[in-house]
Design a protein around this nucleic acid. Structure first.
Length: 107
DNA sequence: AAGGTGACTTTTC
DNA sequence: TGAAAAGCCACCT
């Protein structure tokens, strides 16, 4: 039987994000890779902007530099930083997180 | 149908 | 080390 691939992928991505533990962050590429979409990091981001589920810790997703990606809605950006700091993640002067410390390493 | 866009990543210089 | 360009792929005019 056949399934709509993109919807299935979307669900898989969200599932992965839910697995990211508190106080940790993950990169878009990592999420995409874990979801089985190695080169679709952008799609992950595109999906996150339309997030509506409170169960999804979207704020734990940052880009490969460890910085919060720029977006149209600035409020969302500062909200993300605030949420991460509330979980114990410290930001550097450059407005970045130390990936070598906070990056989620799945088993 | 075809080209532009984007919450990205990696390679190059 | 860091900025710029190229690469990628789904989604939207």
């Amino acid at each position: 039987m056949k399934e709509p691939a993109d919807q299935d992928n979307r669900k898989r991505i969200l599932t992965i994000i839910k697995l990211v533990p508190t106080g940790r962050v993950a990169t878009y590429g990592q999420i995409a890779h874990l979801a089985g979409l190695p080169n679709n990091a952008r799609q992950v981001g595109s999906l996150l902007k339309s997030i509506s589920s409170p169960d999804i810790p979207w704020f734990r997703i940052v880009n490969s530099k460890g910085e919060i990606s720029e977006r149209r809605n600035e409020a969302s950006q500062s909200m993300q930083r605030d949420a991460l700091e509330g979980e114990g993640v410290q930001f550097t002067e450059n407005n970045r997180v130390d990936l070598s410390k906070y990056l989620w390493k799945p088993s």
